[in-house]
């Protein structure tokens, strides 16, 4: 078990360093990626700023500072997810329809692990700088106190958030093993991420139920932020964050493994 883990870790670094070499070859593209990454964060920031332009407005009693905090937090798990899981988007097209999954299956390594490591978008991590700046700004506005424990909790919750996204999107990407499709359900699910940027309490009961128990995006940014905003109302949900993350990723991996058994290569 431990040996397996070390082998995976070692190979993981080998994959990463190879990938970084190819990435550095195209410097203009890398810089372009960095700039667009920053721009992406800026757009929502402007949107929130304009939304609250008139003094004293709240979103169901959530103030501008609080909404900014939630948004700033949401950038962290999302960008980690963009950095380490972008290849899930290609599972249907590149791996299944074009048959590249054969190559993956021939190697004595976990197939999901290999697929994820074949494409890493390190430049997405730059967005976290913006996220950090927003969280700092919002904390100052709201007079939030930061302690070492809170910083560690923050990091832990960010990683949980990444695994919630990872699990959900792994599960959806796995559906391509049964119904090969180029993009399929990824696109609408991708758009559902927007729901998670705002307090889950603003939606109707149906959407709240979905965002908490079916596609648990409420646990990615909103409930973690509620912890830092000292909102005692959501204590139970805050405690559930790691559980949801574990269940989400496990479910994703189980569905992936079931899918790989179902995989039939292309061609005759």
């Amino acid at each position: 078990m431990l040996r397996q883990f070390i082998i995976h870790l070692d190979l993981g670094f080998a994959y990463l360093s190879q990938f970084m070499k190819t990435r550095m070859e195209y410097k203009a593209d890398l810089i372009l990626g960095l700039v667009t990454g920053l721009l992406f964060q800026l757009i929502t920031l402007v949107f929130i700023d304009v939304l609250f332009a008139k003094q004293g407005l709240t979103i169901n009693f959530w103030t501008k500072g609080q909404i900014l905090f939630i948004y700033g937090f949401s950038i962290f798990p999302l960008n980690l997810f963009f950095a380490f899981f972008p290849n899930l988007y290609n599972v249907g097209s590149v791996y299944i329809i074009e048959g590249n999954f054969d190559r993956i299956l021939l190697r004595p390594l976990n197939s999901l692990f290999q697929v994820l490591l074949e494409k890493v978008d390190i430049e997405s991590l730059i967005g976290m700088l913006v996220g950090g700046a927003i969280v700092c700004y919002a904390s100052a506005q709201l007079n939030l106190e930061w302690t070492i424990i809170k910083v560690v909790t923050f990091a832990g919750m960010v990683i949980c958030g990444m695994f919630i996204y990872g699990g959900v999107f792994t599960a959806v990407a796995s559906f391509s093993f049964w119904w090969p499709d180029r993009v399929g359900l990824m696109a609408p699910l991708f758009n559902m991420i927007t729901f998670g940027k705002y307090p889950v309490t603003i939606y109707n009961r149906f959407l709240q139920y979905i965002l908490m128990w079916i596609i648990p995006f409420a646990f990615v940014a909103f409930f973690p932020s509620a912890y830092f905003l000292d909102n005692v109302q959501f204590r139970t949900y805050i405690a559930l964050i790691p559980v949801v993350a574990f269940c989400s990723m496990s479910a994703g991996m189980i569905i992936w493994n079931l899918g790989t058994r179902h995989y039939e290569s292309t061609g005759s």
Binding site: L51, T58, I59, N60, W62, I202
Partner: peptide, 8 residues
Amino acid sequence: FLYKALYH
């Protein structure tokens, strides 16, 4: 939902 909450 966002605008509905903003107009509350």
